[in-house]
Write a protein that binds this DNA or RNA. Structure first.
Length: 671
DNA sequence: ACCAGACTAAACAGGG
DNA sequence: GCCCTGTTTAGTCTGG
């Protein structure tokens, strides 16, 4: 299987190259681990503010104010909790956001910021995705912030009203003081709001314009609360953010019921035990779990949540000397409680999100591959790309196993190839193509770009490649040097091991009777004797069970094959058969391919079509190449042939095709 | 296990 | 003498 082919490839690539080939290597996922620096210590600067506000008020009024303020905060907090907890309870009118709409965002908001550092996010997500995610998050945060502020405002207004009413009965001064206090409250609110916005901006989560940010409550979408928490976790809140601090202090010291978000947020300050949960940098949290899960399978004795001497519980990096200690720690610190449950929930969301991400990425990959190599149109779920691609690439149905060739080196592999290999499962030999008359041309047409740029060994035999090179020319003849050039031009792989493959090319030219050397005026050129070429293919091909098997194999294959055949029938086939077929020109583009691949089979396709693969049919070989101006009668001698090939006035040459690119009209056969 | 095909490596020869 | 081109031989792998 893969191995074989791989090994073969390696072998084939003489010493020197192999090494190089492996360049592509696989990017290990290295992660980059995070730099610890990022984290910020949550610190506590700034809580003065909170106090400060208190101080504003006068005694009793102030207290009242404070009290009410706390109430408002409480409401906000509950709101937060609700959101954080998963929004399950629609209860409050707050539940404004439809579960569906919110759910995702929330999860995202919860996980990304707190759990993942920006760097990690970037590593995991593609730029566009990141952006989308951030936007989502941003939107959510803004929305929540807005709501939060709205609530506060309402509260304050309410307070104001009540107090005003009360004020009527009170001395004016008192009223004045209260109003002053309220105004201050409002100011604070605004400040708070701005602070949050600034924070968000700092984090890059919000791209609001300064002016916007500065805007008053009404205009802005502000951000605090739930969504905000994440940022707190990140450590953003650390240094002097009065507002946040105040919020935390007052609002967060809730009871244990706090959901994840809360608990996390609160952790730093409120509950000591949780302190370690603070994700200073949040990095390890998300990823670790997964890692662990996998690892734990590996080591039975270990615990998935224990690694490298520390607790891998999200946010907890407590060092534990041994498993026993860890277990103890686990039972005490991460027992079944709200916090753990909430964290677990978060983790679930993280995983879920990642899975979704994976699915999306896979889909994208599929689409990319489809676009690059095969039919762009078919976006298939990656579930079984293999089959498809295989089919695509090898219309003939043969499984050519290019397979592994690609594996070692390339980052990308021609769809056809790889898939084929995979699909076939059988590792057929790497160079099968010619053997089975595989349609090199079609394969090349489809993936020539790939081969051109990827240092992958093409899955074709030297003989088939040489033949292809020769057939692609209008005259159907090439000098050795031109053949070399074709190889290097068409395959990145052959730009490297020159000595080796050139020797192989020469060896093949000499060895195979199908390659005829013709003395030309200018020198010697090589042509292809199709008849010989066909001969050398295994006779069984025609009806060989294996062949049939191959053809049949592959779900999609049938259809593709059919289409392929149809295409061939339409385009090339006629040409091939026809005596004149060889005219290089027109045909060249198609023919080469077709012959080639179709090659032997020449005629098969048309009628039998579906069942029989092109090549199968008995050969009518067709064309023989005619040497250009040859003086080369000799050659004819060699090749018994009567005019084998008749036909071809090869000369007619068509024109342009020279470069494969042009020659192989993609559309033609592939479809 | 055998065979055939494909590939790599090398030696050798002729010509420019 | 060097390089390119061609021819041959030998050894190894792989799939049938």
């Amino acid at each position: 299987m893969m191995v074989e082919s791989a090994s073969e490839t390696i072998r084939s690539a003489p010493s020197g190259q192999n090494g190089v080939g492996s360049l592509s290597g696989q990017a290990d996922g290295g992660g980059g681990g995070g730099a610890g620096a990022a984290g910020t210590a949550g610190g506590g600067a700034g809580r003065d503010t909170a106090t400060g506000s208190d101080s504003n008020g006068e005694m009793s009024p102030a207290e009242l104010l404070h009290f009410q303020q706390q109430q408002a905060l409480q409401v906000a907090r509950q709101f937060l909790l609700q959101q954080a907890s998963g929004l399950s309870s629609p209860g409050n009118n707050d539940s404004k956001q439809s579960a569906s709409a919110v759910q995702v965002p929330v999860s995202v908001a919860m996980m990304s910021p707190q759990m993942l550092t920006p760097q990690q996010m970037q590593q995991i997500l593609s730029p566009p995705q990141l952006q989308a995610l951030l936007q989502q998050q941003q939107a959510l945060m803004l929305q929540q912030l807005q709501e939060y502020y709205k609530k506060q405002q309402e509260q304050l207004h309410l307070q104001l009203l009540t107090q005003q009413q009360a004020g009527k009965q009170q001395p004016k001064e008192a009223l004045g003081n209260k109003q002053l206090a309220f105004q201050q409250q409002l100011l604070q609110m605004q400040q708070l709001q701005q602070q949050h916005l600034l924070n968000l901006q700092r984090q890059g989560l919000v791209s609001l314009q300064p002016n916007q940010a500065s805007g008053p409550l009404q205009t802005l979408p502000q951000a605090v609360c739930p969504s905000d928490l994440p940022q707190l976790w990140k450590g953003e809140g650390a240094p002097g953010q009065p507002a946040e601090d105040s919020v935390k202090q007052e609002g967060l010291d809730l009871t244990g019921t706090a959901t994840t978000a809360t608990s996390f947020a609160a952790a730093p300050k409120v509950s000591p035990p949780l302190s370690h949960h603070t994700l200073p940098n949040g990095q390890p949290t998300v990823l670790t779990p997964r890692r662990d899960s996998s690892s734990h399978e590996e080591t039975p004795g270990s615990h998935p949540l224990y690694g490298h001497g520390e607790c891998k519980w999200p946010g907890c990096e407590t060092l534990c000397e041994d498993l026993g200690q860890f277990i103890k720690h686990l039972n005490t610190e991460h027992a079944l409680d709200d916090r753990s449950t909430a964290q677990c929930r978060v983790q679930m969301q993280v995983v879920q999100q990642l899975e979704i991400q994976l699915a999306k990425e896979s889909e994208r990959l599929q689409a990319m591959m489809a676009h690059l190599h095969m039919r762009p149109s078919e976006p298939k779920p990656f579930s079984q790309p293999v089959t498809v691609s295989a089919a695509d690439s090898f219309p003939d149905g043969l499984v050519h196993p290019p397979t592994s060739a690609a594996a070692p080196v390339t980052p990308l592999r021609p769809p056809g190839l790889s898939s084929a290999s995979l699909h076939s499962g059988g590792p057929t030999r790497r160079r099968s193509s010619d053997k089975f008359c595989s349609p090199i041309s079609s394969e090349l047409a489809q993936n020539h770009e790939f081969y051109k740029n990827a240092d992958v060994r093409p899955p074709f035999t030297y003989a088939s490649l040489i033949r292809q090179a020769i057939l692609e020319t209008p005259d159907r003849q090439l000098t050795l040097n031109e053949i070399y050039n074709w190889f290097t031009r068409m395959f990145a792989y052959f730009r490297r091991n020159t000595a080796t493959w050139k020797n192989a090319v020469r060896h093949n030219l000499s060895l195979h009777k199908c390659f005829v050397r013709v003395e030309n005026v200018k020198g010697a050129v090589w042509t292809v004797d199709e008849r010989e070429y066909q001969k050398r293919r295994p006779p069984k091909m025609t009806g060989s069970p294996t062949l049939v098997k191959n053809m049949i194999s592959g779900l999609s294959y049938g259809a593709l094959n059919a289409s392929y055949q149809a295409a061939l029938a339409e385009s090339s086939f006629p040409l091939l058969n026809s005596p004149g077929m060889l005219n290089p020109g027109s045909a060249s583009s198609l023919l080469p391919l077709s012959h080639d691949d179709v090659g032997a089979p020449v005629e098969p396709l048309p009628s039998n079509g579906s069942s029989s693969p092109p090549r199968l049919s008995p050969p009518q070989y067709s064309h023989q190449v005619q040497v250009k101006e040859e003086p080369a009668e000799a050659e004819e001698d060699r090749r018994p042939g009567p005019p084998l090939g008749p036909p071809n006035p090869s000369t007619s040459g068509p024109p342009e095709d020279r470069d494969l690119e042009e020659e192989l009209p993609p559309g033609e056969e592939l479809s």
